Simulated assay, not measured.
Amino acid sequence: MKPKTALILVDIQYDFLPPDGSLAVNEGNQILEPTYKLLDNAREYFDLVVASQTLNSPYQDHPVSHVSFASTHGKDPFTAIEVPKLHSEETITQMLWPDHCVQGTGCELEAGIQTRLDKLSDMVQYIRKGDNIAVDSYSAFADNQYISFTPLTRALHAAEITDVVICGLATDYCVRATAIDACKFGFKTIVLVDAVRAVDGSQNEAVLAELQRWGCEMASSNNLINV
């Protein structure tokens, strides 16, 4: 059977982009040009395009008082704390973030990305995550505790996808979790190193090495598409 490939764009939203995003990833805007190029050539190289968003629903965005917000706990952003694990007496480590992806304050996909997705609407699947205020959700496949799953696996199987190509933000959190889950679900997984950036840039190479240990392949957009 001929392989079929999906391009997965992870959380390319204004709150994760410099200069004004509340949780802007350093150099995050540098992923835009290679991602534009991928989308401009999507019909030639991909069978499906997936765009994930940290959102509560299409109508109600990332909940206020979310467990991941530093403001919820009265602590400083980028502090790690232990929070209760649902349906368990155990705890789980939670990184605390500035409030982000709250309705009307940066949850939208970047305009150049959205314009291109609109032109590809017949081959685009949107995946929205983050609707449970008690559980953080990095991966486009499932929340961090694997309590609930998005429709992504079903959508990929319905389209007979065998391979996924991943880009977006951020390498050390949502990209990492999405790539690992893609491997867990048996997809050949390629991470585009020129189209991802990390919250902690000093950890970028270590995270990419970890993903290779999981079975991910590393590539650049220039090598992937011959344009």
Rank of each mutant, 00 (worst) to 15 (best):
E90W: 08
K37A: 13
V67A: 08
E217I: 12
K2L: 04
N26A: 07
G104P: 08
G168I: 01
V124N: 09
P98Q: 10
E89L: 11
L7V: 07
G168H: 04
D15K: 07
V124L: 09
S65I: 01
S71M: 01
R197W: 09
R154F: 04
L86G: 10
Q13S: 10
A195I: 00
V83C: 02
F141Y: 11
L117I: 09
Q94G: 04
D172W: 12
D163A: 03
V10C: 10
W97L: 01
T79F: 05
D122S: 11
L211Y: 09
L39W: 13
T153I: 00
H73C: 01
S57Y: 12
P77W: 07
L96S: 12
N204T: 10
Y45Q: 11
Q203C: 09
T5Y: 15
L39V: 11
L96N: 14
G130L: 06
I161Y: 00
S148K: 05
D118F: 10
C167W: 01
R128H: 12
L120K: 08
S139P: 03
A198G: 02
E33P: 08
M218E: 10
Q125M: 08
I12G: 02
I113W: 05
L23M: 08
C183K: 14
E27G: 07
L169K: 01
M1H: 15
K184L: 13
I161H: 01
I225C: 04
G74F: 10
C101T: 04
L32Q: 07
V102S: 00
L9P: 02
A80H: 06
